[in-house]
């Protein structure tokens, strides 16, 4: 590799890594769909995972494309399962209190967030599971032990201060509490609630 090629490679790598954690804006449009319009594979996964739970189905359009989402309250805890339009699993998210995370993880996440924001207040925390095996995810949903490989991330919604300005953000962190992605949630117009 010549010196100029090496410099270009370093520059591209720098752009890719810095761009990946620079706050982008979150675009998401979601609307309710009927159960019969959900893909069969998604219906099968949900019926195998959440026995006797009421499921609400949504179609979501975001900067990452169209997805199908099932939301349910299972064992009194909110879960959402995201599928592609063919019904292939993307991830499972479970809402959890930030204070219920392991103390060491709470510290790691807080340290990462303090580097990103001068001040912040967490409003929602979700554990996110990804696995190639559906059975692994079913085990995780049902709090059963699994020795299969899976990825555990954390999705946090917070009000954060950056450059002296407060805004709402969605932050994705890996299992070590390292920030993977920051999305700014654009505020909706609130004139009809204020005036």
């Amino acid at each position: 590799m010549t010196q100029s090629n090496a410099l270009i490679s370093i520059f591209i790598l720098y752009i890719l890594t810095t761009a990946s954690i620079t706050a982008q804006t979150k675009f998401e449009k979601e609307y309710r769909i009927h159960e019969k319009d959900a893909p069969t594979k998604a219906l099968n996964f949900v019926s195998d995972s959440f026995i006797d739970s009421k499921i609400k189905w949504y179609q979501e359009e975001s900067h990452e494309g169209k997805t199908i989402e099932a939301k349910t309250l299972f064992n009194k805890v909110r879960h959402s399962i995201e599928f592609d339009t063919l019904g292939n699993l993307i991830d499972v998210e479970r809402t959890i209190k930030f204070s219920d995370l392991a103390s060491l993880l709470q510290e790691k996440i807080s340290t990462s967030l303090k580097k990103e924001f001068s001040n912040f207040k967490i409003s929602k925390t979700q554990i996110q599971w990804k696995a190639s095996s559906r059975q692994t995810l079913i085990s995780l949903i049902n709090n059963q032990y699994t020795n299969e490989v899976y990825t555990q991330n954390y999705e946090i919604v917070l009000k954060g201060k950056k450059n002296k300005t407060y805004a709402n953000y969605e932050v994705l962190l890996d299992q070590e509490g390292v920030i993977v992605k920051v999305l700014e949630i654009l505020p909706r117009n609130t004139d009809n609630l204020e005036f």
Binding site: K29, E30, Y31, R32, Y58, R188, N192
Partner: peptide, 20 residues
């Protein structure tokens, strides 16, 4: 005090009805 809720989905998007 004013409460606002989408009549379809979890949040109000363009082209959607809501209750206030």
């Amino acid at each position: 005090i004013t409460m606002e809720k989408a009549l379809s989905g979890q949040k109000i998007d363009p082209g959607e009805l809501y209750l206030k």
